[in-house]
Design a protein around this nucleic acid. Structure first.
Lengths: 202, 202
DNA sequence: GACCGATTGACACTCAGTGCCAGAGAGGCT
DNA sequence: AGCCTCTCTGGCACTGAGTGTCAATCGGTC
């Protein structure tokens, strides 16, 4: 196995349990709603103890948003791989576009998005994740701006990264409102264009 | 009394208690930290019951952020009063600038800001408040863009408002990081200029 | 088989937030 | 004054999230 050179058994089972609990929980969420589903419900449905649940997920929100942390890392990698000829905005947008999304069918994605934008605690956590992405992506943008990657004095990179993520968020909300009838990519570009005053070249 | 044409007694006492509890709680927060202060602590220090506390504040975070909701309304009024000659960005920035901030001395403001940016649950709530501001300000910006104020199909106004607030947030964080050594206003303008690609005229 | 390390479930605990209820005051009406 | 009503209040019990602890267990290694 190229990916897993024979990891410890429990590392694999742990991963399997993690995925299984997440799967069970998500179907409960989509069935009765996020807030109406308690952790006891999830633990019971997944066949583990309440206490063990918290060994796999720090919070209930992490079931839905846990992937986002890993995704931020992927975006960072993609961003660093962007050619140096691309300016900050273009590089960010392309990095976001080319980072693979977790593979779900569109109907499920839409359902999850509706849950996400409609549940305050989830929305809050998702915004926090964006802050993490921000911290992850800012150094590379600073580099592209010709600033030292750890220069916290210059807030231009922070502003750019934050606004791109904000545009992504606004576009995501519009996409959800429109029941996914429009292309998310187009919506993001529209948002960015509105902010920058002219059409953004991709 | 021009402002209060003899309100009911309990309306006034209620306001007084609200302010007193908030004052007491804030001093506890600044003394021992937000998370280390329980609601029982606050209730005991303020001389009310735990149950009554929740009749004045929905959550612990509301003590710190409660004003923000009212402030959003003030900003909206200010925004609508901006001359029609100002474009969306200028109007937004001026509205933010001209809305009076709650009067505290700078040292206290900085201390509160540090608490705000350093406490996850407070940060999350503060981002949620920004979402409320967004919903409040977007209709007027749509109007300035020549779109029907309730046209949810056009996300340009949403993007602009969201990004201005994001810039405000980024600037606020930088201001806090720098111990308030730089002017918040300048920081906001720097952030906006970085996003828009050129200096914003105020 | 014996040892080591990670995992597990059970129990107890803290803290935020809510529902319910009975009592106390203020104000209005007769 | 007496009565009625409305609100505020405190107390109690409850749910639900999240954490600390501990003894038991199970996989893997020597």
């Amino acid at each position: 196995m190229p990916t897993t050179p024979d990891q410890k058994l429990w590392a694999r089972t742990r991963q399997a349990v993690h995925a299984e609990v997440a799967r069970t929980a998500m179907s409960l969420f989509l069935e009765r709603g996020f807030e109406a589903t308690t952790i006891d419900d999830i633990a019971a449905a997944a066949g583990i103890s309440r206490r063990s649940f918290f060994r796999y997920f720090g919070t209930k929100e992490d079931i839905v948003l846990g992937d986002l942390a890993a995704r931020g890392e992927l975006i960072r990698k993609e961003l660093e791989a962007r050619p140096a000829t691309e300016d900050a905005w273009t590089a960010l947008l392309n990095a976001l576009r080319h980072t693979p999304r977790p593979g779900q069918d569109d109907a499920t994605t839409l359902q999850i998005s509706k849950m996400l934008y409609g549940t305050p605690s989830l929305r809050a956590r998702s915004l926090e994740k964006h802050l993490q992405w921000q911290a992850l992506l800012t150094p590379e943008i600073r580099r592209r701006l010709g600033v030292a990657p750890d220069d916290e004095h210059d807030l231009r990179a922070d502003a750019i990264v934050a606004c791109v993520l904000t545009c992504l968020d606004v576009a995501g909300e519009a996409w959800t409102r429109s029941d996914g009838s429009q292309s998310l990519e187009d919506l993001v570009l529209t948002a960015v264009a509105a902010v920058r005053g002219s059409a953004a070249d991709a």
